[in-house]
Write a protein that binds this DNA or RNA. Structure first.
Lengths: 342, 342
DNA sequence: TTGAAAGCGCTACCAG
DNA sequence: CTGGTAGCGCTTTCAA
């Protein structure tokens, strides 16, 4: 029994305009009529139709966020920060999950455009040029994380993965590791992600001094575990495993544990992101910190500026990951020699 | 530059009605005009305004879900299942997080009503009668998980926590544990949750044969850790800790590990829910399985039936948790005697 | 301080 | 098979 303005107006003995006014706290309404209206609203259990509101008002109070995998705490943390700031400014945010599926990305973007969101944060690893074009043309203020480049209504936030991965590789190298594996995940588009390429570039720099392999699987606990199996069953015996993110690293830890390999005694493991879970794993993960909260905040403020200022030039913000040393890494050699994989 | 139907119609040389028809695949449109329209749509990068659509059409294609804490994988799993089924039927789902904050719950519900969602799944631990009333009056098909009772347009899904907790307590008791602690979380409303009450009821049955304590903290990794600290620093020395859910249990595991207490050697730990993470912790958690995927599915189908049938009597579905035995529990006694908390 | 009326962009019904 | 037109529920001038 969805009530509408008119019913409320009738019951309160005023016009719909007046009801609208009190509901929006606009242009002083006499206190007596205001209370009368409010009473009618309560009495009828009236809830304004947001679609009509948005349509009539012309502007939406919601901002969208599209992520690859909300199951991975990394994305969730970004979302939380974004939402916190949005709410503080009277916006609500609706999220869409792509599950790394390009097709899903497309429909999510279309959905957001259809909703006429006030702004859109796209936090996915890959995205083809055409889609970016489509979004740009929509005139919706956007902020991309880790994909595309700044332009018209689009702001760019990116992490210098190259540097982050490099730091990890060098750290491990200095610890004596010469046999490295990289565990990544599918990016939905193209087989190699930026992080994987950064890894290859880093290890390649050491020439034949270090042997390495990369393997990818789905993002997640199970993916990390499977990748480790594939790696170890394939006969490669890394002294250190570098994971594309903490989430997968936790899966790696489990598989290693179940095979009786100790971390970091036999194998060192590193994550990436520094999600809360990385402190809670056993052992806690050495990782590269990425400031998710700041990213969420940056995204929101970028969207807002973009909305106020009419089409400013796109900006670009680059974030540098910081190495966080914990118990999952240690010197190479000892363990590997002491124990064989079954 | 948000285009609209009229522009498309003009460019294609047809009426808006025709454009609407091809966009909705309704009533046969001549192939030639159809292609012409589609071309115009593409050319203008046109995206239909969903608000206008919903308003004009009268029915929304989105269903809402409200959860206490999407960060806890339990809720996310329910969401995923719900979304999967929804998408398959052409619905999208938008979620709202309450963070166990009653005030937040209220605004989320209002928001959903304002959106005129086609259905609403409420997955929160507590909710006051007034709100339920407000929702019931909205005529929106609802499904509640673990709260309130079935009525008009409302279906109820609940887990028999009583039985779940009881099974855990008995299992531990049989293992020789006589000193039990329960770690729960705030429910937002009232200090004691149903699970905590179930715990108290279970242990009380054994009279003075078992000593026990309960402590609550925020839901999450940190909450579990803090609660454990409070417990242990408070001088209570439980031989087993029963957690309200797996998520918090992982936090408990960490604190225990850092204090040099072995699990299950010194202390046994149990979780609840059987989330994926419970298999990946060290040691993996003994827990009670709750079929999240099934709950998500049930929720969706309930919503759909409720929508088709006009106001059927509310139904109620009860789910029984199943005990899952893993490495975090073992016989009592040995360890506790061998080691003292610092 | 309040009311009347013109849309917002789209669907749906009624003609043709 | 296609066009015209009346709303959907609300905001927003413009008058009063």
């Amino acid at each position: 029994m969805p009530r509408n303005l008119e019913e409320v107006a009738k019951l309160a003995g005023v016009s719909t305009s007046t009801v609208s006014r009190v509901l929006n706290n606009v242009s002083v309404v006499k206190t007596s009529t205001r209370t009368r209206v409010l009473k009618a609203v309560a009495q009828l259990n009236y809830h304004p139709n947001l679609h009509a509101r948005t349509l009539a008002g012309g502007k939406s109070r919601t901002i969208g966020m599209i992520a690859s995998n909300m199951e991975n705490p990394f994305f969730f943390d970004v979302f939380k920060a974004l939402e916190a700031h949005a709410q503080a400014s009277g916006y609500e945010v609706v999220v869409a999950n792509t599950d790394y599926d390009p097709q899903h990305l497309v429909s999510s973007i279309r959905l957001m455009i259809g909703r006429r969101v006030a702004g859109l944060a796209v936090v996915v690893s890959e995205m083809d040029q055409e889609l970016i074009q489509e979004l740009a043309q929509s005139q919706i203020p956007c902020v991309f994380y880790d994909v595309g480049s700044a332009r018209r209504n689009i702001t760019n936030i990116r992490v210098d993965y190259r540097k982050g991965v490099e730091r990890i590789v060098e750290y491990l190298y200095d610890l004596g590791h010469r046999s490295l594996a990289f565990i990544g995940h599918h990016s939905g588009l193209g087989p190699t992600s930026e992080r994987e390429r950064a890894f290859v570039a880093s290890v390649s720099r050491h020439g034949s001094d270090v042997e390495w392999r990369t393997v990818v699987d789905r993002d997640g606990l199970d993916g990390g575990r499977n990748a480790t199996r594939e790696l170890l069953d394939g006969g490669f015996q890394p002294s250190a495993i570098i994971c594309v993110n903490d989430f997968m690293a936790v899966g790696v830890l489990r598989e290693l544990r179940e095979r009786g390999l100790s971390v970091p005694g036999d194998v060192s493991v590193t994550g990436f992101d520094n999600i809360k879970l990385s402190e809670y794993s056993a052992p806690p993960l050495t990782t590269a910190h990425i400031p998710r909260a700041k990213i969420g905040e940056l995204a929101f403020t970028a969207l807002m500026q973009n909305e106020e200022t009419v089409l400013p030039a796109g900006r670009e913000v680059v974030i540098e990951p910081e190495l966080v040393l914990r118990g999952s890494t240690g010197p190479a050699g000892r363990g590997a020699a002491r124990k064989k994989v079954s």
